[in-house]
Nucleic acid binder design. Structure first.
Lengths: 194, 194
DNA sequence: AAATAAAAATACATATGTGTCAGTTTCTGC
DNA sequence: GCAGAAACTGACACATATGTATTTTTATTT
């Protein structure tokens, strides 16, 4: 595939991402993407066979960017609390955003493709985020910032709370106050409430 | 509508429930339900206009039964711990069941019908379950079984953890051990770990 | 600038689902 | 047991999405 082809493929994926953010996964058709990209049906089929394939590319893009963001914005002299607060603040934004998020689309995508369970991107994201939090808590414990006797378990617990908040925000709605309270619970759980 | 009509409508809803448990919500067509019920297309349209309407009825059924189960199985001399453990045990079963559950279908249904957020059945279920847990914790605190200074908040927190476990079970898979550990965290959070 | 190759667009054939309606069967009261 | 009502059926017309095949446009090479 030529250089121009790669460019165009990326353009399609990025445009499709916006469509998925607006409509979720299941509702999106090849036609929708064709129209958003302002190309022809046949043209799109030259690059992708179906919406799932396109969404898989969107997910790849997404995970790459997620990694970037997280490693980018941490100050040199940041304490464990600082970093954790930063992380939770990001999560809060993600939870409270509605329309402008892929959360629903990702769930729909996984429902559609009846569950590989292991080795799927969602699981990898979950595990890697949990790992980061775990390390963070360990560091904090060493510094005397946190109190915690099971860092891995606590990290996972935090992730489940965040997952619960995320899905609830999508289905039943949720207020900023409730999220704040939950984040406070998390901090209190490791003796870091101030 | 005659008595027989009510019967048949109920038959359709109960049969459709099984279909939704197998296939989720979005994949199910009127044809699927027609075939499961062994009736004709036209016949089904006499009772329901579309799958959403049928699913709404399934949800009604579901909430009714949920209420029944919860109020039914509590012993006279049960302590707050007993009841909470019973509740969590039920939740664990619900989380670990995969195929045989409406969880995915419910989420899909709510995704499809782009979010009323307030006044939807999921929210009502969430709130009412949270309320029950809150009362339970209050009772436990009065009895000296639990320690908790914000029963409402704690109850809600427990619900979010359970929601997180539920959605994770659907998308990334989850083991019995992890669920147990999370439930232990919940109990420990109110000073009830033994 | 003509020949060739690559990319893109249009039209087509197929498939699947929806909702309706004319005709048929089954039930009900007399 | 028969007239009228109610319940039910299968076929039809319609709509939407898919994937492909043919044609047209654009780019590249000599």
């Amino acid at each position: 595939m030529g250089d121009k082809s790669v460019q165009k493929k990326r353009y399609i994926v990025e445009t499709a991402r916006k469509v998925f953010m607006e409509k979720g996964f299941k509702k999106v058709t090849m036609k929708d993407i064709v129209e958003a990209c302002d190309i022809s049906r046949g043209g799109l089929y030259l690059y992708f066979e179906n919406t799932s394939q396109i969404f898989a590319e969107v997910l790849k893009l997404e995970t790459e960017e997620a990694d970037d963001v997280f490693s980018g914005s941490i100050a040199e002299d940041a304490t464990a609390v600082d970093i954790l607060l930063l992380f939770l603040k990001e999560q809060k934004k993600e939870i409270l955003r509605r329309k402008d998020t892929l959360t629903q689309a990702i769930y729909e995508y996984y429902f559609e493709h009846n569950l590989p369970k292991r080795d799927n991107i969602l699981k990898k994201q979950f595990d890697s985020a949990a790992k980061v939090i775990e390390k963070l808590i360990e560091t904090g414990v060493d510094n005397g910032e946190f109190i915690c006797d099971d860092c891995a378990g606590t990290a996972r617990n935090i992730m489940f709370v965040l997952e619960g908040l995320k899905i609830s925000a999508q289905t039943t709605g949720i207020t900023s106050d409730v999220v704040d309270q939950e984040l406070m619970y998390i901090l209190r759980g490791i003796g870091a409430d101030d």
